[in-house]
């Protein structure tokens, strides 16, 4: 990325040039809406954002077709894992997609759950890394810091940009999965895991809920990523530490001796997305996950705020 940030060059018309003391009274506050539009336009102009979004849209299609072919070829539900691997293993073995053949809307939710493990957090971490650290390393953050935009509003705009990425990414996965599911199995088979048939409106409501939940989860990741992003000027550090943190969390979750720690780990909420396929839906797990994500969000945003307000212009 060699082009300077739009906000820095043609952003607020009143942006003082480099060298003008930052403590000049803001003559005109740059409208938040315009800053946000510029930020979002900038995010979606990056080829890497588009590439990862394309990948996110393609994966549910690939999964759906692959599962469909497997089930058609085998004629029977997928085998329940290697024999003798024990009860635990057989649970981890057959993915949620096995139910897909019966129900079109398992594919979008299953894809969302799988991708929320790594690829969606990666997308968000990438956006967060670019938002502060990336611009810092290209010197374009300086324009922002000098512009008549308060630091709090700057963080707000950056967080909103990440939010848009999170929403678009999870919405894309679910939409792509749902369309693939409908094409492969038709509209008749909207069956919940409890064996009840669901109406299309019900399914869309559940999927909407899933997207909202996933966006909140990703924003929790994004807030932590923004905090790291504010402390470094290497976007790579942001992506690596977020993914590293997630991988460590998943490893810790496998250790049952540490089960007191599990409620503190963000990825332990992920399995509750399955509850949306059950009928009636039990919201306990989802609510707990949303609360946990909210806690991470508060921690991440407050750290990012603390860092960005003390950053030297």
């Amino acid at each position: 990325m060699t082009t300077p940030h739009p906000a820095a060059t043609r952003g607020p018309a009143t942006a003082p040039g480099p060298g003008v003391p930052a403590e000049l009274p803001a003559r005109r506050r740059a409208p938040l809406g315009r800053l946000l539009r510029a930020e979002v336009r900038w995010i979606f102009r990056r080829p890497r954002t588009l590439a990862v979004l394309a990948l996110l849209a393609a994966l549910p299609v690939i999964t759906g077709v692959a599962v469909d072919l497997t089930l058609d070829g085998g004629g029977a539900p997928v085998d329940t894992g290697p024999p003798g691997a024990g009860p635990g293993a057989s649970d981890g073995g057959p993915p949620i997609f096995v139910t897909m053949a019966a129900s079109a809307f398992v594919l979008p939710l299953g894809s969302l759950m799988t991708l929320l493990m790594l690829l969606l957090p990666l997308t968000v971490a990438m956006a967060s890394g670019d938002a502060l650290a990336g611009e810092q390393s290209h010197g374009t953050l300086r324009g922002w810091l000098l512009a008549p935009v308060s630091r709090g509003r700057l963080l707000l705009v950056k967080a909103a940009g990440v939010l848009v990425v999170a929403l678009v990414a999870s919405g894309l996965v679910v939409t792509s999965g749902m369309v693939t599911g409908l094409v492969l199995t038709g509209t008749d088979g909207l069956v919940s895991m409890s064996g009840t048939e669901l109406s299309m409106a019900d399914v869309l409501g559940r999927l909407g809920l899933a997207v909202a939940w996933a966006t909140l989860y990703l924003m929790a990741v994004g807030a932590v990523a923004l905090a790291i992003s504010a402390f470094t000027e290497h976007p790579m550090v942001v992506v690596v530490s977020v993914l590293g943190g997630l991988i460590v969390s998943v490893v810790l979750m496998q250790i049952s001796a540490l089960d007191w720690l599990h409620p503190f780990l963000l990825p332990s909420s992920l399995t509750s997305l399955v509850d949306l396929i059950r009928d009636p839906v039990s919201f306990d797990g989802l609510a707990e996950g949303a609360f946990r994500a909210g806690c991470y969000l508060v921690i991440g945003m407050s750290l990012a705020y603390a860092r960005i307000t003390t950053k030297a212009g």
Partner: peptide, 25 residues
């Protein structure tokens, strides 16, 4: 000052977040 404000923001944010996580556990 901005530095104190930052410290207060970081401190209270972390406290609230961790307290919430502890509560849910």
């Amino acid at each position: 000052g901005p530095r104190t404000k930052a410290l207060v923001a970081a401190g209270s944010g972390i406290t609230v977040g961790l307290a919430g996580l502890a509560l849910s556990s």
